[in-house]
Amino acid sequence: EDAPSSDDLEQFAKQFKQRRIKLGFTQADVGLALGTLYGNVFSQTTICRFEALQLSFKNMCKLKPLLNKWLEETDSSS
């Protein structure tokens, strides 16, 4: 699987934040939901840093598919 470019990540982080707010979730909600869904709880700080593009590139790449999946799950259930 190709690693996303930093442009991709930036684009995704923006879209993710907009969708999250529109769906009415806090950063902490998302962190907990990831724990429920995938067994990895993320702190509010981590989600905040992801949205602000302040995580390392490697961590951004790791989180992106999880957050993407969460969006898909959340979209389909709302």
Rank of each mutant, 00 (worst) to 15 (best):
G35V: 02
L9K: 05
L71F: 01
Q15E: 10
G35H: 05
L53S: 13
K17V: 07
G31H: 07
S56Y: 01
D75Y: 14
E72M: 13
N68A: 12
A52E: 13
L32H: 13
L63Q: 01
C48Y: 06
V41C: 09
L34W: 00
A3M: 15
G39S: 07
T74N: 15
L66G: 01
S78G: 14
I21K: 06
K14W: 05
C48K: 12
S5I: 07
Q18F: 06
T36D: 14
T36S: 14
N68S: 12
P65K: 09
R20A: 02
A13R: 06
E73P: 05
F25V: 06
K62Q: 08
L67D: 09
L23Q: 06
G24K: 05
E10C: 09
F57C: 05
L37H: 14
S43E: 09
Q15A: 10
K58W: 06
G24W: 01
S56V: 00
Q44H: 11
A33Q: 14
M60C: 03
D2Q: 15
D8C: 06
L55G: 04
D2M: 15
E73D: 15
F57D: 11
L55A: 03
L55E: 04
F50I: 03
E10Y: 07
L55W: 01
L66K: 06
S5V: 13
E1M: 15
K69V: 03
Y38Q: 08
T26R: 03
Q18T: 11
C61S: 08
Q54H: 11
Q44Y: 07
D75V: 10
I21R: 06
E73Q: 13
Q15F: 09
N40V: 09
Q18H: 12
L53D: 02
L32N: 05
E72H: 11
C48E: 15
K69D: 08
T74S: 09
L32T: 08
F50M: 03
F42S: 05
W70I: 02
K62G: 05
C61F: 03
M60W: 01
E10K: 06
Q27L: 06
A28N: 07
E51W: 00
K22T: 10
N59I: 08
F50W: 02
S5D: 15
T74L: 08
S56Q: 03
E72R: 10
K62D: 07
S76R: 13
Q11F: 10
L55S: 06
G31Y: 00
W70T: 03
T74C: 12
L53K: 09
K22L: 09
A3F: 15
S43T: 11
D8F: 04
E72V: 10
Q11G: 07
D29C: 03
Y38I: 14
A33C: 04
F16A: 01
E72Y: 08
L34F: 05
L9H: 02
F42G: 03
P65D: 11
E1R: 14
N68E: 13
G39M: 00
S78V: 12
N40C: 10
W70V: 03
Q18W: 07
D8E: 10
K58H: 10
L23K: 05
T74P: 05
Q27W: 08
Q11A: 10
C48H: 11
P65I: 13
Q44E: 15
G24L: 02
G35S: 13
P4F: 05
C61E: 10
A13D: 00
E1Q: 15
L32E: 12
Q44V: 08
V30F: 04
S76T: 14
A13V: 11
N68G: 11
L67P: 03
Q11C: 07
S77A: 13
L71V: 06
E51M: 04
R20D: 02
Y38D: 11
